[in-house]
Design a protein around this nucleic acid. Structure first.
Length: 577
DNA sequence: AACGTATGATCCC
DNA sequence: TGGGATCCCTACGT
């Protein structure tokens, strides 16, 4: 459907004149300006056409007061509407209603290729565009063949594949005072969700007892970048922060100890301030691994809380290492990812390359990585697959998800690249695609979407479920009450539950059938959030003693999928065996 | 409603 | 090699 343009009322401009001298000087200036603009523009014809159409460009005549009008001719200033992106006239980028119109002078905002806009980008129409599906697993011997042919059809599927949590079950609005940066489900207690924010606060929320929530505010001074539960005691969590410390916090008491402080002398300027980003725990080796913004990796012993071995430069000196992940099956393997670390000249052009690197924990030295996986922009996250640990999934700021099917195969180039909108924006927590830990095929992945879509007149940013074996969009999940972008998402390790961090709010999603039970049960508590929240705040101000801590039960209503697929098919094993 | 601002990667000189 | 300009679909407060 072609984008609809709306005729905007243009403001009248009146220029007041005080003195004759000023008048003459300013008038000549203006005339010059007009002239210059006209000369610079070869869009004159186009412009006139548009004026006739009553579209974007309009001329404003400035009428001088009647008395002076006789002496001086009226001045015509051309206030052409200018594109806010490329500053040219003749078109305008931005929202027209709930639809965003791209600047045609810029490369596609989705795939970054010039020549078209997101509106017509083939990747927007189908996420699987250009993705070569993973090859079917060929049966090699007769036993395999017999199993596939005769036994498998009789074995009931353990999990009816791809259950999509698509209904907002409950939400905490303005739980945090700054945007959410990370989420983590408790490894054993099903309803406990931890959240970190930009301020360094740590939230603990029991989302089945909606009103039970805690925020620990004195653990870190700024961004809580990553957290992981202590494998030997799941009542405590480790967290890495941009304040340069690692914390170990007791969830019951909120008492926190610091394992490391990289800035013992305080603020000495930005060139020396160290920030911790990547964090993971290797329970086999009994170490907490962290990485900083200067490219260094540190290992901390869990028992002694002291550093093990040397500090190792694992990426280019001075480049931020944003993610670390230990292989869930082979504890000797470590994955790191981060910012640009080299520049390459190719075909007379210079390309920046960011890397994810695989390391052998037994031989951790600078330059000894087993393999480097190249990306064109910063790699926000790199994860081994949760069950077999043999696949790798990365999220890069070049708007692509990359998948390597086997760490034992050829790692030279990714098995698949899926174009997906998850641009970097300094005001947003970086997007990270997360595996579904429950999917035995290790192909379902969740990631928030940056660009919005017009859903019945509302610009919403859905959360995408992608089958990374085919690149297909399995489901796009959104709620009319969530108007902000949702860069932080985590799937529950056992339940069909999705947790979303969107701006300062946290949402819990269930598959439809579950949420309806909850809705019935708590009908009186159901209120709206998002834009409706403001109104409700006023209403609730009398009842609630602390509006910042309001917990709101929200009734989710799934908006029709863009492709208007029936619900059943959206949650089926589409494109799979 | 219109603006200001927080603030990170990247490009370019 | 380093600092300053730039940025594009932000979110929220005044």
């Amino acid at each position: 459907m072609p984008p609809q343009t709306r005729r905007m009322a243009f403001p009248n401009v009146v220029i007041e004149r005080d003195t004759d001298s000023e008048e003459s000087s300013s008038s000549s200036d203006e005339e010059q300006d007009v002239e210059e603009e006209d000369n610079n523009d070869d869009l004159e014809a186009e412009e006139e056409e548009e004026v006739e159409n009553g579209d974007t460009v309009e001329e404003v005549k400035v009428e001088v007061s009647a008395a002076k009008k006789r002496e001086k001719a009226p001045i015509t200033i051309s206030l052409k509407k200018v594109c806010k992106v490329c500053k040219r006239t003749g078109h305008e980028a931005g929202f027209k209603g709930a639809t965003y119109i791209d600047c045609p002078m810029k490369p596609c905002f989705l795939c970054k290729t010039p020549g078209h806009t997101t509106m017509t980008c083939p990747h927007r129409i189908a996420t699987e565009y250009g993705v070569i599906p993973a090859p079917r697993r060929h049966t090699h011997n007769s036993l395999d063949y017999v199993f596939e042919r005769q036994l498998r059809p009789n074995i009931p599927a353990i999990k009816p594949a791809f259950v999509i949590p698509d209904q907002v079950n409950c939400a905490v609005i303005r739980y945090h005072s700054r945007r959410v940066t990370c989420l983590e489900f408790h490894p054993t207690r099903n309803n406990i969700l931890l959240s970190g924010d930009k301020k360094g606060q740590l939230g603990v929320w029991d989302y089945c007892k909606v009103h039970e929530k805690i925020v620990y505010g004195n653990i870190h001074g700024c961004i809580l970048n990553n957290m992981k539960f202590n494998p030997t005691n799941d009542g405590t969590v480790y967290a890495a922060s941009s304040d340069g410390t690692i914390s170990c916090t007791d969830l019951e008491t909120g008492i926190s100890s610091s394992l490391m402080n990289l800035n013992p002398n305080g603020w000495q300027g930005p060139s020396s301030w160290r920030m911790l980003y990547g964090l993971d725990v290797n329970s086999e080796k009994g170490v907490v691994l962290v990485a900083d913004n200067f490219g260094y990796l540190y290992l901390m012993d869990i028992r002694s809380n002291s550093q093990v071995g040397e500090t190792i430069l694992i990426h280019k000196k001075g480049s931020k290492v944003v993610g670390l992940h230990c292989n869930p099956v082979q504890p000797d393997l470590l994955l790191s990812c981060g910012m640009i670390i080299l520049k390459v000249e190719y075909c007379m052009k210079i390309f920046s390359i960011s890397l994810a690197r695989i390391w052998d924990m037994r031989r951790l030295e600078s330059g000894s990585s087993l393999c480097s996986l190249a990306h064109r922009r910063v790699v926000n996250s790199a994860y081994f697959s949760p069950r077999s640990g043999s696949k790798i999934l990365t999220t890069s700021q070049d708007n692509r998800l990359r998948v390597w099917d086997s760490i034992f195969g050829n790692l030279g180039s990714p098995s698949r690249e899926i174009v997906h909108s998850h641009d970097f924006n300094r005001h947003l927590t970086p997007f990270r695609a997360e595996w579904d830990p429950k999917d035995p095929s290790e192909s379902l992945v969740v990631i928030g979407r940056y660009i919005s879509e017009n859903y019945n007149g509302a610009a919403l940013h859905p959360i995408d479920f992608i089958d990374i074996s085919t690149g297909k969009l399995v489901a796009e999940v959104m709620d009319p009450n969530i108007t902000t972008i949702s860069p932080v998402n985590k799937l529950h390790p056992r339940d069909d539950v999705l947790a979303t961090g969107s701006s300062r709010s946290i949402f819990i999603w269930n598959p439809k059938e579950k949420s309806e039970i909850v809705q019935q049960k708590d009908e009186k508590k159901i209120v709206l959030c998002g834009k409706a929240e403001k109104k409700l705040n006023k209403k609730f101000d009398g009842e609630s003693d602390d509006s910042d801590d309001d917990i709101r039960k929200i009734k989710g209503k799934i908006t029709k999928s863009r492709k208007a697929e029936p619900k059943s098919s959206r949650c089926s094993l589409k494109g799979k065996r």
